[in-house]
Amino acid sequence: MSRKAFTRLLAAVSVGVALTACTGNTAAPPAGQAGQGGAKVANDEPGEKVVIGFSAPAADHGWMAAITNATKAEAAKYSDVELKVVEGTNDVNLQISQVETFINDKVDAIVLLPFDGAALTPVALKAMKAGIPVINVDRQFDSPFAARSTVLGDNYGMGVSAGTYVCDKLKGKSDAVVAEIAGIDSLPLTQDRSKGFADALRECGLKVNNRVAAEFTVESGEKAAANLLQAAPRIDAIWNHDDDQGVGVSAAIKNAGRKEFFLVGGAGSANVMREIKADNGLHKATVVYPSTQGADGIRLARLAVQGKSLGDLVEVEIPRQVELYAPVVTKDNVDRYLPAAFES
């Protein structure tokens, strides 16, 4: 029985009991790999062919486009990976249908960035029960059994990073007015960002005085910011969750002729980083939300199917969850992050 066939059989039997079994490495490690407790793993050496299906929301803003582009580029690096990419969609039913097609086509693994994690949970569970490892990206499923591994940005950490930076900038200003322009309020990731921001501000005696929500688009950012500026005659700092919608936020600020505050961005776009580097605008920082998550998903999917592990870990299987760091980019460190930034 091939490794892939064994993987699928084992996952079908045990998905409800031990999720990690679906990629269990029960045979002897291939040549060039170390066993449990070993040193190096030759992860990049060509191995058994892996067919990976990839589905994500529509690339209607820079960050999502960067996710998809990075995913394709990463897959192209491996001669043993065949990537099947379906058209990005914000239609939940269509995305469910796309995953159903991957299952019917018997792909070896699925990398899935769901438009809505809760809505895509049942079909992800179906894939896992069919023995197809699912790598969940960015927006979590409702069930821990719906994915073999999950790659996440640190949304709560984004809020903490942004709030900590605001606290440092407004040190000693107890009457400071802090505003927040969130993303899609119904998404857990937005809720986590807002919670982290509020928790960090609380540590220095500040709070969010004015808050509006947008939809991660330029148009929604401009509309939400215009409403915020009209409601708040004085602001000392604004944290905008997303640099793509930040293009609209900046337009609204310019139209209103406001410049008494500083801006902290979110996600880490190249245009915001260039403004930070030039130090000639309202943006003084942005908090990175990596657009490499899909690419990381490709690597994990390949390793899971081939029965390999991460070379920098002792464990013989891929991790259950990977949470990426959310650093603050300022003029002091912008040169480090700018080359990898996405264009809004």
Rank of each mutant, 00 (worst) to 15 (best):
S2F: 09
R3N: 11
T7W: 12
L10Y: 11
V13E: 14
L19A: 13
L19G: 15
N25S: 14
G32V: 04
A34S: 09
A34N: 02
V41L: 02
V41W: 00
D44L: 15
E48I: 13
A59W: 06
W63F: 05
W63I: 03
A66I: 00
A66E: 08
T68A: 13
K72M: 13
V85L: 10
N90K: 11
D91Y: 09
N93Y: 04
N93C: 01
S97V: 08
Q98C: 15
V99S: 08
T101A: 12
I103T: 06
D108I: 00
I110R: 12
I110F: 12
P114H: 08
D116Y: 04
G117P: 10
A118T: 08
A119D: 03
A119G: 10
L120A: 14
T121H: 09
P122E: 06
P122R: 03
V123L: 01
V123I: 01
K126A: 04
G131H: 02
P133F: 03
V134C: 04
V137P: 02
V137L: 05
F141R: 07
S143W: 11
S143P: 00
D154S: 07
N155V: 02
Y156K: 15
Y156P: 15
Y156V: 12
A162D: 07
G163H: 03
C167G: 14
D168S: 13
K169L: 09
V177A: 01
V178P: 00
V178W: 00
A179Y: 09
A182S: 14
S186G: 11
L189M: 11
R193G: 01
G196P: 00
F197I: 00
A200E: 00
R202I: 10
L206V: 00
L206H: 01
R211W: 08
R211E: 07
R211Q: 10
A214R: 01
A214M: 06
T217E: 13
E222L: 08
N227E: 11
L229Q: 11
A231Q: 05
P233K: 09
R234I: 09
R234Y: 13
A237K: 08
H241P: 06
H241E: 12
H241I: 14
D242E: 09
V247P: 01
V247T: 05
A252F: 07
A256P: 05
R258Y: 04
K259T: 08
E260L: 10
F262S: 01
G266A: 11
V272L: 02
M273C: 03
R274T: 07
E275K: 02
E275S: 03
A278F: 14
D279G: 14
D279E: 11
N280V: 05
L282A: 05
L282M: 03
H283A: 11
H283L: 05
T286N: 08
Y289A: 09
T292M: 08
D296K: 12
D296C: 09
L303V: 02
A304M: 10
K308L: 15
S309K: 06
L310A: 03
L310N: 07
L313Y: 01
E315G: 04
V316K: 10
V316M: 08
E323P: 09
A326F: 02
T330Q: 02
K331D: 14
K331W: 14
V334S: 09
A341D: 10
